[in-house]
């Protein structure tokens, strides 16, 4: 039922788009009709696939590094009280700098290749992951910690056996946000300076008034973003089955 509903909504939107283009008589170099975009999708398929591979690699690597870095930071500030006092303000202030404003600098430092986009995606997801995981680590049920104390648990084991598992639902919400914003980081990075990727393709197509190709690139990007999100969401649900069993998760 759920996939069917998505298909119906998607088809309805395309139909609406078609009607708007036909009814308003908008020229195809402003807003191409869906059929034109489909044609561009087919005729440029190899190029689209090649650029998509670059963008996907940037997104996945960004997710990997951002998650690793975010988890490491959250664990450090959650377990080291002294470090927390120093690091937490730095972390918060760093969020006052818009990550997009850093894109030109990243390109300057890391070049036109993969590295600057991976850095961009990493930076953009670093904070949501850190904040969510740290929040989860901070909010361990006090009764569990009391129990661990009377049992004579070591701090490290208590962290590993109780605090981290208890923080996983919070971390997973952070990861969902990260998955949704990582493509933005990669594409913005590509806009600022690149020689490949879907963002690069969009800029090129735009400059040549190939708006249908631009939409085709956008479509591929959206398709991947949605697929990635459902994959991550599904994996997180499977990894934390007790969350659903608890009945605390609302659909």
């Amino acid at each position: 039922m759920k996939p069917l509903r998505s298909v119906i909504v998607f088809a309805g939107l395309i139909l609406l788009w078609h009607i708007v283009v036909v009814a308003s008589g908008t020229p195809h170099y402003i807003l191409p009709a869906p059929a034109r975009v489909a044609t561009a999708l087919v005729s440029h398929w190899p190029a689209l696939l090649g650029h998509a591979a670059v963008t996907i690699a940037e997104i996945l690597l960004g997710l990997l590094f951002g998650t690793l870095l975010g988890c490491a930071t959250a664990l450090t500030i959650a377990s080291q009280r002294a470090l927390r006092r120093w690091l937490l303000p730095v972390l918060v202030i760093s969020q006052a700098i818009p990550v997009f404003a850093l894109a030109p600098v990243l390109v300057l430092w890391l070049g036109y290749g993969l590295a600057s986009k991976v850095a961009m995606a990493t930076l953009i997801i670093y904070f949501p992951v850190t904040a969510a995981f740290f929040d989860g680590l901070r909010r361990t049920e006090p009764g569990w910690l009391d129990l661990a104390q009377t049992m004579g648990g070591t701090p490290l084991r208590t962290l590993w056996r109780i605090r981290i598992p208890a923080a996983l639902p919070a971390l997973s919400s952070g990861l969902r946000v990260a998955t949704a914003v990582a493509p933005i980081g990669a594409v913005v990075g590509e806009w600022v300076g690149s020689s490949a990727g879907l963002g690069y393709l969009m800029l090129q197509a735009n400059a040549r008034m190939q708006v249908d190709l631009m939409f085709a690139a956008l479509f591929v990007l959206a398709l991947f973003a949605v697929t990635l999100y459902s994959a991550v969401d599904g994996a997180l649900r499977r990894a934390l089955p007790w969350q659903a069993e608890d009945g605390r998760v609302m659909d």
Partner: peptide, 8 residues
Amino acid sequence: LLGPDLRG
């Protein structure tokens, strides 16, 4: 088995 586990 939580207690033994927490004590390593």
